[in-house]
Each structure stands twice: as structure tokens, then as C-alpha cells.
């Protein structure tokens, strides 16, 4: 019986169809050669090298935090797309939509996963940075990858900032208020910032309430629907897209810089 099943599986594996999908034939890699082949012949696996020094897989060394940050990002992307099906970014609907989110479907915990996932990702990214620092892994030739890492950190925090505004509840709107008023305090670029009042010809100010850093952020002089749409687009399109590009470069650089850092 078992033999027959094995035979059947083997036959399926040998079909043109399966062989066309898995470049190495779909078998479970058994020997060293095959194990090296999986890594080389699979798009998702080839993010990794084939062989690595042993310390690089020690949890005690990497804490797995970079990998987990990436994984949680993927979870957030999937759950976020599900949430988008039920969310309308308007002042009229946003709050109600978020409130109903859990009732839309049975077992609706996608909002919970998305929200707690966002918190968790912040923690893992911070801890990842901490371990990279403590192992001195930012030193040459990895300096620039650290810089990319800082950009990733910034983008992660911006993603959460834009995200928690979307429910349009009290937390959201006061977060926007305070955040956008900080923008208004930027030197030269904001009406309330130092230097802005110097940028004028005669009595015409270049930087005023209708044209400053705050205005760009909330698309108006007061917080309202335009601001919600702006943050929605940033949260769902601009920032995820940007962070994916930087992540790609980050991973590529990890490999090009010689893999996980190791003692010389």
C-alpha cells in the first residue's frame, strides 16, 4: 500500500506539469547536492545563500529579529489588504467601518492581527537594530546597510503613524493634530517654525497657513477629509511600496556584504 502511494507520488512528480513548476523536479532534497540545488533553483529560496557559517543560524547570535520583522511585515500586508475591503476612507464612514470590521465576517480578528502585528513589528525592528549594534555588525563593509536599516526603521514608524489615524477616532485625530502641528513648527518650512517669517517680499509671506509643511500633510488648513485621504494613500500605497524597495536592497546588501557578520 505504502509502496503504491510512493509510486503514485513519484509518477506525479515526474509529470511535465509538476516538473515545469519546480525547477528541480519537486522531490524532497535528500543529499547534499540536492539540498544545494533547492536553494539555487527556487526563486523564494535564492534570497538565501547555499551554505553559511554555523554561527549565523544560532538564535543566540541573530535572535532571528530581522527575519521576523520581514515576516510580520508580510502578515501586515495580507491582513491590511483584507481590511481594505471593508474600509472607506471618508469622515462619514471610516469610524463605523472600523467598528464593524469584526462583525463583517465570522472569526473576524484581522483587525486585531493587523494592529497588534504593527506593535510587534516595531518591537522586532528595534530589537533587530539593537542586536546589529551589539554585534558590531554595522562596521565596514556593512555601513551602508545600516543606513538603509535606519531608513527602514523610519518607514516602519511612519507606517504605524499613518495607520493609527485611519480609524478616525479620538486617538487618530489628536495624533494628526499634534503631528501636523509639529510639521508647522519646522524651520523655514512651517508657519510656526523659526525663520518662516523671514521668507517674504514686502508684506507677502511665502510660507503661510495655506502653503507650508503642515498644509502638504493634511491638504488644508484644518483637519478633515482631505487629510484622511492623504494618510490613507500614504499608509496603503506609498509607504508599503517604499519600504518593500528598501527591504529588497537591504536583503541584497546583507548577501553582497558577505552574509551575516562574523569575527575575522
Amino acid at each position: 500500500m505504502l509502496d503504491k502511494l510512493k509510486k503514485l507520488l513519484e509518477n506525479i512528480r515526474q509529470t511535465q506539469f509538476v516538473r515545469s513548476i519546480f525547477r528541480m523536479g519537486g522531490g524532497f532534497p535528500r543529499d547534499v547536492r540536492q539540498r544545494m540545488f533547492v536553494m539555487l533553483n527556487n526563486f523564494f529560496m535564492h534570497l538565501h545563500p547555499v551554505r553559511i557559517p554555523k554561527h549565523a543560524i544560532k538564535i543566540k547570535y541573530t535572535w532571528c529579529m530581522g527575519g521576523l520583522s520581514f515576516f510580520i511585515f508580510l502578515v501586515l500586508a495580507v491582513t491590511g489588504m483584507l481590511l481594505m475591503f471593508y474600509y472607506r476612507p471618508t469622515v462619514e464612514f471610516a469610524y463605523g467601518d472600523v467598528m464593524d470590521m469584526n462583525e463583517q465576517v465570522p472569526l473576524g480578528i484581522m483587525r486585531e492581527i493587523h494592529r497588534w502585528g504593527a506593535h510587534l513589528m516595531i518591537i522586532t525592528v528595534w530589537l533587530h537594530m539593537f542586536r546589529v549594534f551589539m554585534t558590531g555588525s554595522y562596521k565596514p563593509p556593512r555601513e551602508f546597510n545600516w543606513v538603509i536599516g535606519v531608513i527602514l526603521l523610519l518607514l516602519t514608524m511612519l507606517l504605524s503613524f499613518t495607520g493609527y489615524l485611519l480609524p478616525w477616532d479620538q486617538l487618530a485625530i489628536w495624533g494628526i493634530s499634534v503631528g501636523s502641528n509639529m510639521a508647522a513648527a519646522s524651520p523655514f518650512a512651517g508657519t510656526e517654525g523659526p525663520g518662516a517669517s523671514l521668507l517674504k517680499i514686502g508684506s507677502i509671506n511665502f510660507v503661510h497657513k495655506g502653503a507650508d509643511a503642515r498644509f502638504v500633510l493634511i491638504a488644508g488648513r484644518f483637519i478633515g477629509e482631505a487629510a484622511l485621504v492623504r494618510f490613507y494613500v500614504l499608509h496603503c500605497v506609498v509607504l508599503p511600496f517604499t519600504i518593500m524597495i528598501f527591504m529588497a536592497v537591504h536583503f541584497w546588501r546583507v548577501r553582497k556584504d558577505g552574509g551575516i557578520s562574523k569575527p575575522l
Binding site: 495655506g210 502653503a211 498644509f215 502638504v216 491638504a219 488644508g220 488648513r221 484644518f222 478633515g224 477629509e225 482631505a226
Partner: peptide, 10 residues
């Protein structure tokens, strides 16, 4: 493009 011409404000 980030600065709209018309604002719908009260």
C-alpha cells in the same frame, strides 16, 4: 500637486 487650489472648509 500637493497643494490643492480649492479647499472645502467651513
Amino acid at each position: 500637486y500637493l497643494f490643492p487650489n480649492v479647499l472645502f472648509e467651513p
